[in-house]
C-alpha cells in the first residue's frame, strides 16, 4: 500500500476516497478536510474566539488539535459529568492534552456547581441519562460561551455521527429534526453560534489521527451509552460502507446539498418565541428553563 501523494509506504486506507496515505499526508488530508468544511459552511472566521466542547474522546481532542494547528484561538471546555471511572479517565485525557499543547481548558463540574451528577440527576428527574446529559451539556456550553465572550462553540461530531443521526431522522421522517440538522447554526436569541468542523471526516480517521499525533484519549465507552439507538444505526451504515465505500459520505453530504433546505421551514414553524429563564437568564420558551427545572428536581430528590 502506497501513499496517494508521495508513493511512500502508507499507514492508512481511506476507502471512500479510494486513497491510502502516509503519516504526513494523512495529517494534511485531515487539516484540508476541516478547512474545507469551515469555509464551505462559513463555520469560523480567522479572528473568532472558539470554544471547543471537549469530552476527552478522540473526536473532540482531535478537533481541538486541528483548530490549534490551523491557527484558531481555541479554548476547551470540559464538563465533569460525575459518571464514575469514565469521567475520571476522560477528564485526565482532556487535562493532559491541554497541558501538552499549552492550551486553556475551562472546567465545569456538575456536582460542585449544580449539586447533582448525571447518574443521580437523571434518576431524580426520571429522565434517561443521555437525555439529562444532553440537556446539561447544551446548557453549560451555551452559558460558558455567553459569559466567556466566545463567538462560536464547536463540537466533535464527525461524519459517522451525522450520518447516523440523519439515518434515524429519515427512518421516522422527523421533518422538524431534519430541518435542524445543519452543520452550523447561527447565533440567535442568546444562543451562541454552533459548528461541526469534522463532518467531512469519519470516526475511524479521527481515532487514527489521535494515534498518529500521540494524543491519549479515552477509548472506553461511557457506561450509559449501552443500547443507544445511534450505535445500531452506525453499525448498519458501516455494513453498507463495507461493500460500497462512500455511502455514508454521499448520504449525509448529498442531504446537505440537495435536501436539507427543504426542511428548514419545518424547524422554523416549530420554533417558539423565547424569553429569559427566570432563574438563570438562558433563553427558554417560558418561565424556568428545562435545565433549571432538572437542577431543582435533582437537588430536592438528592437532599431527601
Amino acid at each position: 500500500m502506497k501513499c496517494r501523494v508521495c508513493r511512500e509506504p502508507a499507514i492508512i486506507d481511506v476507502r471512500r476516497q479510494n486513497a491510502n496515505y502516509c503519516t504526513e499526508h494523512f495529517l494534511r488530508m485531515c487539516r484540508d478536510q476541516v478547512t474545507k468544511a469551515i469555509e464551505r459552511h462559513d463555520m469560523l472566521s480567522p479572528g473568532d474566539a472558539v470554544l471547543v466542547a471537549v469530552s476527552g474522546g478522540k473526536d473532540s481532542l482531535a478537533l481541538w488539535d486541528l483548530l490549534l494547528d490551523l491557527g484558531y484561538r481555541a479554548d476547551g471546555l470540559y464538563i465533569g459529568l460525575g459518571i464514575g471511572e469514565y469521567s475520571d479517565a476522560s477528564g485526565a485525557c482532556a487535562r493532559a492534552f491541554a497541558e501538552a499543547r499549552d492550551a486553556t481548558l475551562v472546567e465545569v463540574d456538575l456536582r460542585t456547581r449544580y449539586g447533582f451528577d448525571i447518574p443521580n440527576g437523571a434518576k431524580a428527574a426520571r429522565r434517561a441519562p443521555c437525555s439529562a446529559c444532553g440537556l446539561a451539556k447544551r446548557h453549560v456550553f451555551d452559558e460558558a460561551a455567553r459569559l466567556g465572550g466566545y463567538d462560536v462553540v464547536v463540537t466533535g461530531h464527525n461524519l459517522d455521527d451525522e450520518a447516523a443521526v440523519l439515518f434515524g431522522n429519515v427512518l421516522r421522517w422527523q421533518t422538524e429534526y431534519l430541518g435542524r440538522q445543519q452543520p452550523v447554526l447561527p447565533a440567535r436569541d442568546g444562543f451562541p453560534k454552533k459548528a461541526k468542523p469534522l463532518i467531512r471526516l469519519g470516526e475511524r480517521e479521527m481515532a487514527a489521527y489521535c494515534v498518529v499525533r500521540g494524543i491519549d484519549y479515552i477509548v472506553e465507552e461511557c457506561p450509559m451509552a449501552a443500547g443507544n439507538r445511534h450505535l445500531g444505526y452506525k453499525e448498519a451504515l458501516n455494513q453498507l460502507e463495507a461493500t460500497s465505500p462512500g455511502t455514508k459520505f454521499a448520504f449525509y453530504h448529498e442531504f446537505l446539498d440537495k435536501a436539507a433546505e427543504r426542511f428548514v421551514g419545518e424547524a422554523d414553524d416549530a420554533r417558539e418565541a423565547l424569553v429569559a429563564c427566570d432563574s438563570c437568564g438562558a433563553p427558554t420558551p417560558s418561565g424556568t428553563c428545562a435545565f433549571c427545572r432538572l437542577t431543582a428536581r435533582a437537588q430536592v430528590e438528592i437532599r431527601a
Binding site: 474522546g57 478522540k58 443521555c130 446529559c133 444532553g134 477509548v219 445511534h230 458501516n238
Partner: peptide, 10 residues
C-alpha cells in the same frame, strides 16, 4: 484492535 465507534447521543 481498537474499536472506533462511539455511541453518545448528545
Amino acid at each position: 484492535l481498537r474499536p472506533v465507534i462511539s455511541g453518545g447521543a448528545a
